[in-house]
Amino acid sequence: MTKGAFSGHDSKDRADALRLTRRELLALTLAAGLLRGLPQTASAAQTATEPLLDVVSNRAAAAVLGRAYLVAHPEEADLARLRTLLQERLRTDVSDEASILVRIERQLRNDYIRGDLVEVDGWLLSLTEARLYALAALARAG
């Protein structure tokens, strides 16, 4: 095959990571709706995600990536669900602040070694990492 038309790789063709697209808004609206519908549960979930989010140095930056992930995976736009998914992947109590960074780092490394990856706005990310950023996005939206 000879080369042909190519598009979609420069900044003009990519969605601005800071600007919300219609799909992003939909995902966040869904998430916000869930949070409103279940205020106590959501609030509890939000509190319980704090140790997880503490490993994220800049939550606003992480939220940008997290929103992009949720656009592709709107079914995960739920704080409690994401927390559960992360807990399953980490096989640990995610409220245990002392061990959480070590466990996450180990899981990220394993994800990258095994190829358990997703592409988020072009970034090649471990699934665990992407969900962590999605958690940051939902926490900010909430």
Binding site: D16, V56, S57, V64, L65, D121, G122
Partner: peptide
């Protein structure tokens, strides 16, 4: 229009601990 720079900075700051 600086979307690439912004995205790189987001990535660096989000994953800083790793």
């Amino acid at each position: 229009d600086d979307t690439q720079a912004r995205s790189r900075l987001d990535m660096l700051e989000a994953a800083r601990r790793f």
